[in-house]
């Protein structure tokens, strides 16, 4: 039996095609365990060795990694949802309805997308708390904390822009509440302190820029859709690259 398995393994691995993909043996020896980190672009996010203290689940609670995982999950389910959704106020609501009634796995993907979004917001908050409590923002990691704060803001805005897309009462009014606040921005909003003094009106202030109009309507839906599916994820991806690269360079701030 063992011989047969060995033969099959040899058949699969001992050829030009396999070796062009995987350039080393199974990671069962220390040398190959190092090589797998060098030669795999995703695993390359990790160093070859890591401080033992950083391996303690009680130290990191896996929160940063989980946040990234939720982001990936959201990207995958989000792409699926984009096939069935048109950001048109006459269609959007029915498209979401169809996800729950006529599209195979539509409701599963929508539910997963929603729960992953909630989970990501929560895990970002908890990750930040963990990083604070372990003092991991202290030199030389100050700037990475700043990048992290920006990612926190992006996570919240991403969640919020997604909230409008189903175009139901919940969506419309949650975003209306939010955009009312934009209107009250000092200087930049028509209802904010000093806003009218410098010439802000409902048709040229920051809320107008955000919604593309004076009410939450078609332009707002399109803006939120483009930001949610394209603009903000791109910015997040860039900042995440910086965030991870910095961790890779500075190492875990682990104990020991």
């Amino acid at each position: 039996m063992k011989e047969i398995i060995a033969k099959i393994v040899k058949l699969i691995t001992d050829n030009q095609v396999y070796r062009s993909v995987f350039r080393h043996g199974f990671p069962t020896t220390d040398a190959n365990r190092a090589l797998v980190m060098f030669s795999n672009v995703i695993l390359h996010l990790h160093p070859v060795r890591v401080r033992r203290g950083a391996l303690k689940i009680r130290f990191t609670w896996c929160l940063g990694g989980l946040t990234f995982f939720f982001f990936i999950m959201l990207a995958i389910t989000g792409v699926f949802l984009m096939f069935y959704y048109v950001p048109d106020t006459r269609r959007a609501y029915n498209d979401i309805k169809d996800l729950g009634t006529v599209i195979y796995f539509g409701s599963l993907f929508r539910n997963m997308h929603r729960w992953a979004a909630h989970a990501m917001v929560l895990s970002v908050w908890m990750h930040m708390t963990r990083v604070f409590l372990t003092g991991s923002y202290k030199p030389p990691r100050e700037f990475n904390w700043v990048v992290g704060v920006l990612l926190l803001v992006l996570t919240l805005v991403l969640s919020w822009t997604g909230y409008l897309l189903p175009w139901d009462q919940l969506a419309l009014w949650a975003v209306t509440v939010g955009s009312k606040m934009a209107e009250a921005t000092p200087l930049l909003g028509n209802a904010g302190p000093f806003g009218q003094e410098i010439g802000m009106t409902p048709a040229n202030d920051v809320r107008f820029v955000l919604l593309g109009g004076t009410v939450v309507g078609q332009s707002a839906l399109l803006r939120f859709y483009v930001l949610h599916c394209l603009g903000l994820p791109l910015v997040s991806a860039v900042l995440m690259a910086v965030h991870f690269w910095r961790i890779r360079k500075d190492g875990f701030s682990g104990p020991l």
């Binding site: 303690k56 009680r58 130290f59 409590l133 104990p255 020991l256």
Partner: peptide, 14 residues
């Protein structure tokens, strides 16, 4: 309390 608990649990380990 969580911070204190984690501080203690890592100290004991050392």
């Amino acid at each position: 309390g969580i911070a204190v608990w984690l501080e203690k649990s890592f100290k004991n380990e050392k």
